[in-house]
Amino acid sequence: MQTKLLQKIGVVFINGAGLESRIWSKVVEGLEHPILLVDFPLRKGTVDARSRLSMEDYVMHIKRQVDEWGIHKLVLVAHSLGGVLALKLAAQLTDRLAGFVAVGAAIPKNGGSFLSVLPFPKRMIMSAILRTLGTKPPESAIRAGLCHDLSPDHTAEITKGFIPEAIRVYMDRIGVSSPNVPRLYVKLTNDKELSPSLQDHMISNLSPQFVRSLETGHLPMLSDPDGLRVILEDFMENVR
């Protein structure tokens, strides 16, 4: 069984800002592919230690986990801020990449950053907030943006466990374009964090061959893990 799994295409899951890899745990149950849930650097370290990290530090930390995994061909599945990391990572894995999935993800144009995908007024406001107040939103904002359609238990888990990221992961620019592999964008039609209209711009930037929709908020891996798993399973039929 293990040998058969090693011959299959693997799936690498990259979470969004403030979250941990276990957020995908319900989605990956039953997926008949090797699975890697990657962690961001210094997750157990101090806020001060993480604050010095760059976008490149995040990407290289993820790439080391992928390289140590032992699976050659892989699909990247990225959520939210993880879309920016996944694009940069994909450019370093061109000989191994079999597919790319963006789940309500930020997809900047070549030379852009996470902040660059936001409309101009919101971009300026968020830039000022990040520089003055840091990268952990108030609990009220987390509840309204990330958790508005989640259960009380999931909401409590997200608000209490939110981990501030390095500011540069939002601001560093990436000089890469969409990877030349099968691409899927999963649009979240009830998302209050990355609005459906803004996701339409992300879809335009990614130019995916496939677009699927889920009627969820920003965290479908918690609110509809079965629906997201079905979409991923369907997509995996299109990659080789």
Rank of each mutant, 00 (worst) to 15 (best):
A78W: 00
S113G: 03
K187G: 00
G10Q: 04
M221G: 12
P220C: 00
L87S: 09
N238F: 11
A141M: 11
L53I: 01
W24I: 08
R229W: 03
S195P: 00
L146D: 05
L115D: 07
I129M: 15
L133W: 04
S25N: 14
F120K: 08
Q65S: 02
V12A: 08
D224I: 04
S127H: 07
A166S: 12
L222P: 03
T189W: 03
M236N: 09
L76T: 07
R22M: 04
A106I: 10
G112M: 01
S116F: 02
Q65T: 04
E157V: 06
K44D: 10
S177E: 12
L214V: 03
E20P: 10
A106W: 12
E165T: 02
S54K: 05
L118H: 03
V230H: 05
G99C: 06
A102V: 10
T159S: 15
N238E: 11
T132E: 04
S151L: 07
R229M: 01
N205Y: 14
A78K: 07
H61R: 02
Q199F: 13
M126F: 14
G18V: 02
H61P: 03
I129E: 13
H218W: 15
I163R: 15
S213W: 01
L81V: 02
A49S: 04
V12C: 15
D234K: 15
L6S: 11
H218L: 09
I203K: 01
Q7N: 13
V101Q: 04
L19F: 09
E29P: 00
K73L: 06
E157M: 14
L37E: 07
L6Y: 14
P164K: 03
V38N: 07
L97H: 08
L115G: 01
K122V: 09
V27I: 10
V47F: 01
V28E: 01
V186T: 06
M55Y: 06
V101H: 04
C147T: 06
S197Y: 03
V169Q: 08
H154R: 06
L53A: 00
S207Y: 14
Q209K: 12
N238H: 15
D153M: 05
M221P: 08
P208L: 10
R43V: 09
Q209A: 12
L214M: 00
L194N: 12
E215N: 13
D172I: 03
L150G: 11
